[in-house]
């Protein structure tokens, strides 16, 4: 079994989000970058397949050299090898095209992406990649079991869970639930040492073009201060919600 996990390099969830150069560029000053949490749930599930079914796990990212530390972390967590496609991530479409060219060179049974990155929140890459490769696609995936060539996967929907079946190969949009938070693997010293010896290939990007561009950022307007209501005067809260906020 050959598994590809697509990794996105994102700011840590506690980062302060600021912009520089007339709000055109994200301010990376003092920001720590991490494996996109949805991708990490997917990677952890892939490592489970590696341990149970002797799957080979390859991680890939589309990005510049600054993305290599998180690829090394993926190797320390247990991935067998890493690939960095040496290109700026322009938009979802061009990233999907880069990944597609890798998937055409090597054949993967399972391709796992996070359902969305926590920085761009586009949720575009996994579905685009699946459509480009004409593979079945399950996003918001909270469970995936493979028996021979058959896959049973569960998808979280608005207000419930859907159970789906299909055949390999498949593209998955991973999220929490595929594994639990407590299943996430913290690399140990042995893993970190081994990761230094594992292959991290840098490949030249395929020809691709983008279909969208981000021109500038803005932050939400500053919030006014909270109106505190006396706990002995609940009627006031109800009146505020009804008459002032008009939400009940």
């Amino acid at each position: 079994m050959n598994i590809l996990v697509c990794i996105s390099n994102v700011p840590d969830t506690t980062s302060k989000i600021n912009f520089v150069e007339n709000d055109k560029i994200f301010d990376t000053n003092g920001v720590q970058f991490i494996i996109n949490p949805n991708d990490e749930f997917g990677l952890t599930r892939a490592i489970w397949f590696q341990q149970k079914n002797q799957a080979t796990v390859t991680v890939v990212t589309v990005g510049e050299i600054s993305c290599e530390p998180i690829l090394r972390k993926c190797l320390a967590i247990g991935a067998n090898k890493a690939v960095r496609i040496d290109s700026k991530a322009l938009d979802g479409f061009s990233v999907a095209e880069q990944l597609k060219s890798l998937c055409e060179k090597e054949s993967f049974d399972i391709i796992i992406c996070g359902r969305e990155s926590i920085d761009y929140n586009g949720g575009m890459v996994p579905g685009m990649l699946a459509q480009m490769l004409e593979m079945p696609f399950v996003t918001n995936c909270i469970s995936m079991d493979v028996n021979g060539n058959e896959v049973i996967a569960k998808r979280e929907i608005d207000g419930g869970v859907e159970t789906l079946s299909c055949s390999l190969p498949i593209v998955i949009g991973a999220q929490k639930g595929l594994v639990e938070e407590s299943d996430l693997i913290i690399p140990n010293m042995r893993g970190i040492m081994q990761a230094r010896q594992k292959p991290l290939d840098v490949v030249a990007p395929a020809n691709s073009f983008s279909k969208s561009s981000v021109d500038k950022f803005e932050k939400p307007p500053a919030k006014g201060s909270v109106k505190l209501v006396d706990p002995d005067n609940i009627d006031e809260l109800i009146s505020l919600l009804h008459n002032e906020a008009k939400v009940i």
Binding site: N121, M124, G127, A130, I157
Partner: peptide, 23 residues
């Protein structure tokens, strides 16, 4: 931006060769 619409929007984008913006 329902779960179902976000699920199929990237498929549609590739089929139509379209640009896509969610949220």
């Amino acid at each position: 931006s329902s779960a179902d619409s976000k699920y199929m929007s990237p498929l549609l984008a590739v089929q139509l060769g379209a640009g896509l913006a969610s949220n």
